[in-house]
Amino acid sequence: MKTQEELTEIVRDHFSDMGEIATLYVQVYESSLESLVGGVIFEDGRHYTFVYENEDLVYE
């Protein structure tokens, strides 16, 4: 089982391919040991929310 830090790094690596990240945040109250819920804001102003669970990243 991966730690929350490892899950965060996986998500950061994925989004870094889309541009320069200004902020990546995790909603700790919605996340667990198996899933990571949060959002990412890019330097150009784009903002996505995401759920990473079971090695699957869903964002909008």
Rank of each mutant, 00 (worst) to 15 (best):
M1K: 13
M1I: 13
M1H: 13
M1E: 09
M1Y: 13
K2E: 03
K2Q: 06
T3H: 05
T3F: 04
T3G: 07
T3Q: 05
T3N: 08
T3W: 05
T3M: 05
Q4K: 13
Q4V: 10
Q4R: 11
Q4G: 04
Q4P: 06
Q4Y: 11
Q4E: 09
Q4D: 04
Q4W: 07
E5K: 08
E5M: 09
E5F: 11
E5W: 11
E5I: 09
E6I: 07
E6S: 06
E6Q: 09
L7F: 04
L7Q: 04
L7R: 04
L7V: 06
L7D: 01
L7C: 04
T8K: 08
T8M: 12
T8A: 09
T8N: 04
T8F: 10
T8I: 11
T8Y: 10
T8R: 09
T8Q: 08
T8C: 09
E9V: 09
E9I: 12
E9R: 14
E9F: 10
E9Q: 13
I10C: 06
I10G: 03
I10W: 08
I10S: 05
I10Q: 08
I10A: 07
V11W: 02
V11M: 05
V11K: 02
V11D: 01
V11E: 01
V11N: 02
R12Y: 10
R12L: 09
R12K: 10
R12I: 08
R12T: 06
R12M: 09
R12D: 02
D13K: 15
D13P: 04
D13M: 12
D13Q: 13
D13E: 12
D13N: 13
D13F: 13
D13G: 15
D13I: 14
H14G: 05
H14D: 03
H14F: 15
H14M: 15
H14V: 12
F15T: 01
F15D: 01
F15W: 03
F15L: 06
S16G: 08
S16T: 10
S16K: 14
S16A: 12
S16C: 07
D17I: 14
D17A: 14
D17S: 14
D17W: 13
D17Q: 15
D17V: 14
M18D: 03
M18Q: 06
M18E: 04
M18V: 05
M18Y: 08
M18F: 08
G19F: 03
G19I: 02
G19C: 03
G19K: 02
G19V: 02
G19Y: 03
E20N: 15
E20W: 08
E20F: 11
E20A: 13
E20M: 12
E20H: 14
I21N: 02
I21A: 01
I21V: 07
I21Y: 02
I21H: 01
A22P: 01
A22M: 10
A22W: 07
A22K: 15
A22G: 07
T23L: 14
T23N: 11
T23S: 10
L24K: 00
L24A: 02
L24S: 01
L24P: 00
L24R: 00
L24D: 00
L24C: 04
L24G: 00
L24T: 03
L24Y: 04
Y25P: 00
Y25W: 08
Y25A: 03
Y25R: 03
Y25E: 04
Y25V: 05
Y25C: 06
V26I: 14
V26P: 01
V26R: 01
V26S: 03
V26N: 02
V26Q: 02
V26T: 06
V26F: 06
Q27S: 13
Q27H: 13
Q27A: 12
Q27E: 11
Q27D: 11
Q27R: 09
Q27W: 08
V28R: 13
V28Y: 13
V28H: 14
V28P: 06
V28K: 14
V28C: 10
V28S: 12
V28W: 13
V28A: 14
Y29M: 07
Y29R: 05
Y29C: 08
Y29A: 06
Y29L: 07
Y29T: 07
E30I: 15
E30N: 14
E30A: 09
E30Q: 09
E30W: 06
E30G: 07
S31D: 09
S31V: 10
S31M: 10
S31G: 11
S31H: 11
S31E: 13
S32R: 05
S32W: 10
S32N: 11
S32I: 11
S32P: 07
S32H: 12
S32M: 14
L33S: 12
L33C: 09
L33G: 11
E34D: 08
E34G: 15
E34V: 11
E34P: 14
E34N: 15
E34R: 08
E34L: 09
E34A: 12
E34Q: 15
S35T: 12
S35C: 10
S35Q: 12
S35Y: 15
S35K: 15
S35D: 03
S35G: 06
S35L: 15
S35H: 12
L36E: 00
L36G: 01
L36K: 00
L36V: 06
L36P: 02
L36C: 04
L36H: 01
L36R: 00
V37F: 07
V37D: 03
V37W: 11
V37S: 10
V37Y: 11
V37N: 06
V37A: 08
G38F: 03
G38M: 02
G38P: 00
G38R: 00
G38Q: 02
G39N: 07
G39K: 06
G39R: 08
G39L: 11
G39C: 14
G39A: 08
G39T: 10
V40R: 00
V40H: 00
V40C: 05
V40G: 00
V40Y: 01
I41F: 08
I41G: 03
I41P: 00
I41Y: 09
I41H: 06
I41D: 03
I41Q: 04
I41E: 05
I41N: 03
F42R: 01
F42I: 02
F42W: 03
F42C: 02
F42P: 00
E43N: 12
E43Q: 12
E43H: 14
E43S: 15
E43K: 15
D44F: 02
D44P: 01
D44I: 02
D44W: 02
D44A: 01
D44E: 02
D44K: 01
G45R: 04
G45F: 04
G45D: 03
G45S: 04
G45M: 04
G45N: 04
G45E: 03
G45P: 00
G45C: 05
R46C: 09
R46V: 05
R46G: 04
R46E: 05
R46Q: 07
R46Y: 04
R46L: 05
R46N: 05
R46H: 07
H47S: 06
H47T: 05
H47K: 07
H47V: 07
H47E: 08
Y48I: 10
Y48V: 05
Y48H: 02
Y48K: 02
Y48C: 04
Y48P: 00
T49V: 08
T49Y: 09
T49D: 05
T49S: 12
T49F: 10
T49K: 14
T49P: 03
T49I: 13
F50W: 08
F50Y: 06
F50N: 00
F50R: 00
V51Y: 13
V51W: 15
V51R: 13
V51I: 14
V51N: 07
V51T: 11
Y52C: 04
Y52L: 09
Y52A: 03
Y52G: 00
Y52K: 02
Y52R: 01
E53F: 13
E53A: 15
E53N: 13
E53S: 14
E53Q: 13
E53R: 12
E53L: 15
E53H: 11
N54W: 07
N54L: 08
N54C: 08
N54K: 15
N54F: 10
N54V: 05
E55C: 08
E55I: 05
E55T: 09
E55A: 11
E55R: 08
D56H: 15
D56S: 15
D56E: 13
D56K: 15
D56R: 15
D56C: 12
L57H: 02
L57K: 02
L57G: 01
L57W: 05
L57A: 02
L57S: 02
L57M: 06
V58R: 15
V58P: 01
V58F: 14
V58I: 12
V58C: 13
V58W: 13
V58L: 14
V58G: 06
Y59N: 02
Y59F: 11
Y59Q: 03
Y59P: 03
E60K: 15
E60D: 08
E60L: 10
E60F: 11
E60N: 12
E60I: 15
E60W: 15
